[in-house]
């Protein structure tokens, strides 16, 4: 858990539930990639946990999208969309296994 984020209990709880899941990354990432990435299995560079991007916790109140590992809450992916450029930071993803060939 990301205990350094807040001090007040109420605010902490708010922060803890103020996320969506990685399914919500599907649209923004479809602007960049030709295949669906929400079903891609990533490995967290922090704790080594693996899972589909759809299971990440996505916080959208930052400027852009911040996706955290559901197990250790490290940042796995960040995506910021400017007018002409999309910035994709995958520093927290050790690897991505992307299913190809299927629909969707």
């Amino acid at each position: 858990m990301d205990t350094d984020r807040t001090s007040a209990q109420g605010t902490y709880e708010e922060y803890e539930t103020a996320y969506e899941d990685g399914n919500t990354l599907g649209g923004p990432l479809s602007e960049i990639f030709a295949v669906d990435l929400t079903a891609a299995v990533g490995r967290c560079a922090g704790c080594g946990a693996t899972g589909p991007l759809a299971r990440l916790r996505v916080y959208d109140r930052a400027p852009g999208l911040v996706a955290r590992c559901p197990d250790c809450s490290r940042v796995v992916l960040r995506l910021v969309r400017g007018p002409d450029t999309a910035w994709l930071d995958l520093q927290g993803a050790a690897s991505l296994a992307i299913p190809l060939g299927g629909r969707g």
Partner: peptide, 10 residues
Amino acid sequence: LRGPIGGWFV
């Protein structure tokens, strides 16, 4: 409208 989106929750 953008979509359809998603390949995991299907």
